[in-house]
């Protein structure tokens, strides 16, 4: 029987070595993602190149490609992480709402507050969302679908508790609410609207879009 020292086991154990590698890989990925986030925010999606992202992360383009398939892969990762965090805070906001109008307003505001400090990234994302390839990818992200569902849930809840009529066309109405929520980013991005201004706008929009579904 071959003697193996405890040190050797520690160093060569098939369990520990990959863990360390995985950790290093994770750190590399995090570094690339941070650099990519910065460049997408500064240059837009089209303007940011893998070469620049690699340089900003202090590594070769090869090292970037070892971790990500392409630029769209990087962008998708960033958007997934952000929209997951946003969906959580939207859910929390909805749970604090008193009635359907208030709940929806809080959901809208959760979004505007979240993106307040990262409007350039939001701008890049809107650009991508209207391109033939990027649009379907962004819209099909799990958390983005989750947001749609959250809007629909709020309407269905209001129908159940009698706040809204039974035949409230919840599907179309929640779609329109979601689009109204998104459309206000134009004012936030290009006209520098404050959260207060966005809130006043959102409150009116929600009122208009729910008017026909009110009881009585």
């Amino acid at each position: 029987m071959k003697h193996i020292s405890p040190n050797q086991v520690a160093a060569e154990s098939p369990v520990r070595a990959p863990t360390r590698r995985a950790l290093a890989k994770q750190q590399t990925r995090a570094k690339v993602l941070a650099a990519a986030r910065k460049l997408f925010s500064e240059e837009g999606y089209e303007g940011a190149t893998i070469r620049d992202i690699a340089a900003a992360a202090g590594m070769s383009t090869g090292a970037v490609f070892a971790n990500f398939t392409d630029k769209s892969d990087l962008f998708r990762e960033i958007m997934t992480a952000d929209t997951e965090a946003l969906l959580d805070s939207m859910r929390e906001a909805a749970s604090r709402g008193r009635g359907v109008e208030d709940a929806l307003l809080k959901v809208f505001m959760a979004g505007y507050s979240f993106y307040k400090s990262r409007l350039p990234l939001a701008r890049a994302a809107f650009g991508v969302s209207w391109t033939p390839d990027g649009g379907p990818v962004l819209r099909s992200l799990g958390p983005v679908q989750g947001m749609h569902e959250l809007f629909t849930e709020q309407l269905n809840l209001a129908i159940e508790n009698g706040e809204l009529r039974q035949e409230a066309e919840a599907k179309l109405r929640s779609q329109m609410l979601f689009e109204a929520y998104l459309s206000n980013f134009v004012q936030a991005i290009f006209e520098g609207w404050s959260l207060e201004a966005l809130q006043a706008r959102a409150r009116d929009q929600i009122r208009i879009l729910l008017a026909g579904a009110r009881r009585g």
Binding site: E43, E46, G47, R123, A124, F126, G127, W130, T131
Partner: peptide
């Protein structure tokens, strides 16, 4: 519409 967000 996509170009509305274009940097250039």
């Amino acid at each position: 519409i996509a170009a509305a967000y274009d940097w250039t």
